[in-house]
Design a protein around this nucleic acid. Structure first.
Length: 427
RNA sequence: GGUGAGGUGGGUGAGUGGCUGAAACCACCGGUUUGCUAAACCGGCGUACUCUUAACGGGGUACCGCGGGUUCGAAUCCCGCCCUCACCGCCA
């Protein structure tokens, strides 16, 4: 969530920037409400502190008087303290309530877009910052099959069995399909470790505090699978457990940037999706993903964002996949992000660009909720910037690899994966 | 799941109702000393909120796992929850 003191001191800039998200006027008006409510919070706080100070003072005197045997005077004071108890209780309750509604209202204000982010309604207005200028895969002598047909033909993925065991959107990988999946995971992890990321294998279920801290709750509650009996959520991305490792921590300057990577399956209910978008691997309830996370000094976070984008580029280069990079416009930008680059890979048979990675700088939006700070020696602890990105999401990469590398009689595995798969071709 | 012990500041750890925001030690920072290092000595050393100040700073409040309660007053007493450790049960 946004920082209250910045919201107060910088509200014009923030309002202007938030307009890029095409927010309703009501949402923008909420900022004024928040500030007004915060004013009343301060007043209540001040009044309460004053009463408590008095009560504390008198309590100390009572102790002294009792020791001196002056019980009468003590009793007078005791009654005085009791007289204010009602008001103190009211103020405390009021304060608690106000704080709660304040944070609830703050949760509803999305992050402030970076100045490079353009205004826009939706994905059509995203800015292509790096287009694909090479050739797109072309096929002669046969018509390319979409990946779900290839998966079937070469027995790589069995969607029917997945549906039988669990339901639709839970693919079952088998044989060379399973090995290719595992090869991709290992390849991505190895590349991340080469780039200096520490590998994490986190829990796949998280408690509500954790889900709240990275912003999945209350925002995306309906998108997560929930285990009611134990009050736990299945993670929609490794970002959730990995970023929460640092919740309520203060890191020293030398520890920055913290670089973490983790492979996990990701679980998403994807309520409301339908049509060709969900065919095959395009949109599934369970998929594998290697995530990269960085915790950075605010002065360096955009440099680090570029570094992370370059890392994802290098992965796609090595996989020989045609891709383009978009900077999301205000309307398409995620709720918690200040700037996001999306990577799209061309899937040759579907003739579609598929989103395979999203790399974002959250600035202090996440760290504020996480209470994640750094200390630079002398000054007070300050909030860090957090960033994360997929490097990469497996399902759609798999789809693109299968479709782009088919030659009519089989599928050629990209060279970079050979040592991970142990085979060079599927046929 | 059962029983027992325990959760105090960056760490170890004292503290069973007021003089304890919290001893002591370690770590850390500053200083004295020193050819350098070390040692010794002196000083400093939590966070959040709030009021005040041009600022340095100063005042107040809250926080001893979390949430309630008792009391004029709670780290300390009571209740609930969470977590850790040990043993038992179950188990990949």
């Amino acid at each position: 969530m946004l920082e209250m003191n910045i919201l107060r001191s910088d509200q014009d800039r923030i309002k202007t920037a938030l307009k890029k998200r095409n927010l309703t006027p009501e949402t923008l008006a909420q900022i004024d409400e928040i500030i007004a409510l915060d004013d009343s919070r301060k007043a209540t706080q001040t009044r309460l502190d004053k009463l408590l100070a008095e009560a504390n003072q008198k309590s100390r005197e009572i102790g002294q008087l009792f020791r001196q045997g002056e019980t009468e005077k003590a009793n007078v004071l005791r009654n005085e303290v009791n007289d204010h108890k009602g008001e103190i209780k009211d103020l405390e309750d009021n304060l608690k309530q106000v704080k709660e509604s304040l944070s609830q209202m703050l949760f509803e204000i999305p992050n402030v877009p970076h100045e490079l982010v353009v205004q826009g309604k939706g994905e059509e207005e995203n800015v292509v910052v790096r287009d694909w200028n090479g050739d797109l895969p072309s096929f002669s002598g046969f018509s390319p099959l979409p990946h779900w047909d290839l998966a079937d033909k070469y027995q790589l993925i069995d969607f029917g069995l997945g549906a039988k065991i669990t339901g639709s959107g839970f693919p079952l990988f088998r044989g060379k399909g399973a090995r290719l999946e595992r090869a991709l995971i290992n390849f991505f992890l190895a590349e991340a470790e080469k780039a200096g990321y520490e590998e994490i294998i986190p829990p796949l279920l998280v408690n509500p505090d954790t889900a709240r801290a990275t912003g999945q709750l209350p925002d995306k509650e309906g998108q997560m699978y929930y285990v009611e009996k134990d009050d736990l959520y299945l993670i929609p991305t490794a970002e959730v457990p990995v970023t929460n490792m640092l919740r309520d921590e203060t890191v020293s300057l030398e520890e920055l940037p913290v670089k973490l990577t983790g492979y996990t399956p990701c679980f998403r209910r994807e309520a409301g999706s339908y049509g060709s978008d969900v065919k095959g691997l395009n949109r599934v309830h369970q998929f594998d993903k290697v995530e990269i996370v960085q915790v950075a000094h605010p002065d360096h976070s955009y440099q680090i964002l570029d570094e992370m984008v370059a890392h994802v580029e290098s992965l796609l280069d090595k996989l020989e996949l045609p891709f383009r990079i978009l900077r999301l416009c205000g309307g398409d930008l995620g709720f918690t992000s200040a700037m996001t680059y999306d990577f799209e890979v061309f899937s040759a048979a579907q003739e579609k660009w598929l989103e395979v990675s999203s790399v974002s700088n959250f600035e202090t939006y996440q760290s504020n909720r996480l209470n994640l700070k750094y200390r630079d020696g002398k000054s007070k602890p300050a909030l860090v910037h957090t960033l994360n990105g997929s490097a990469l999401a497996l399902a759609r990469i798999m789809a693109a690899i299968l479709e782009n590398n088919q030659d009519g009689s089989g599928i050629n595995i990209p060279w970079a994966l050979h040592s991970y798969t142990g085979f060079e071709r599927i046929d």
